[in-house]
Amino acid sequence: MHPVLRLLLRRAGMSALVLIGVSVLIFVIARVIPGDPARIALGPNATVEQVANLRDALHLDQPVWRQYGHFIADLARGDLGVSLYTNRPVTTDIAQFLPATLELVFAAAILMIGLGLPLGILSARYRGGIIDNSIRVVALLGVSAPSFVWAVILMLLFAFFLPIFPIAGRLSTDFLIEPVTGFLLVDTLLAGNPAAFGNAVSHIALPAFALALSGIGQAARLTRANMVETYDRPYIEMARSYGFPERRIAGRFAFRPSLIPSLTILGLDFAAMLGNAFLVEAIFAWPGLSRYGVAVILRKDLNAIIGTVLIISATFLIANLIVDLLIAWLNPRIRHGRGTGG
């Protein structure tokens, strides 16, 4: 078997185990709720009988491990239960809200990689100079404020003070786009409507940038630190003595090996973005999982809380799996099946 394939299978198995662990953890957290979830869901005017019926329907009178059994059996059928808040299946709710959140997080991740890595390379190449120091300060500022503060500042500057970008939402109401993937950036292109695509881009620009800022800072800081270390290696000295241009040394010899440790951390940053998306969505009225997530948490809507956390964790695990594969592909020791790697 190809070594990368073997690694993929091992990591996928591990992720599945972790996901089961997450489901147990979140299930236990949700079941130690003080107060009766059925009573909270039905409100103070419900009769004792109604509450008893709902408790029965939710299996709340059974021991926790049996409740978990019911939950897993339902989950295997793709059923996460009914949200007590919207009275709809949790899967329907999530399917409605998740694409907007994912679109925002993917856009931010692209910004993080597209801006953070080049800034880090520049910083390391001109180490100690004015470019390096300015980039370091900007990167540190980026990681020093929560994304909702950046969201407020960007919104005031570029939507109110200089009205370049729209204030809120995903798309102007002038456009009617048939949802195919749920990702408006993709759907507008599929509909062959460049004006709508431009409109969607201008809507996503500010929230994505606010969400990405701390990731950009983190990526730049990491890349710089790793590259500075690599620059001290003898083979860089040798490349210089062979007369390779400084540009090629930075881009190929110093950056490539530094990318591997950076990638692992970028995977974790992606996770942080999935959580921070909640904050940015609240400021820009982005119709994603945020409002739903906070509402179900405040209402102690068990099924919806468990479903939301599970889906977000699964997304995170898949993203990390992809990062692991990228690392395996970038690392010749793993790619060619020498050494254990990992």
Binding site: A272, G275, G293, T308, I312, F316
Partner: peptide, 14 residues
């Protein structure tokens, strides 16, 4: 493997 903010949020929900 649970995004930090989401974990804290679900605990606060309880």
């Amino acid at each position: 493997s649970i995004p930090p903010l989401v974990l804290a949020m679900s605990i606060m929900g309880v």
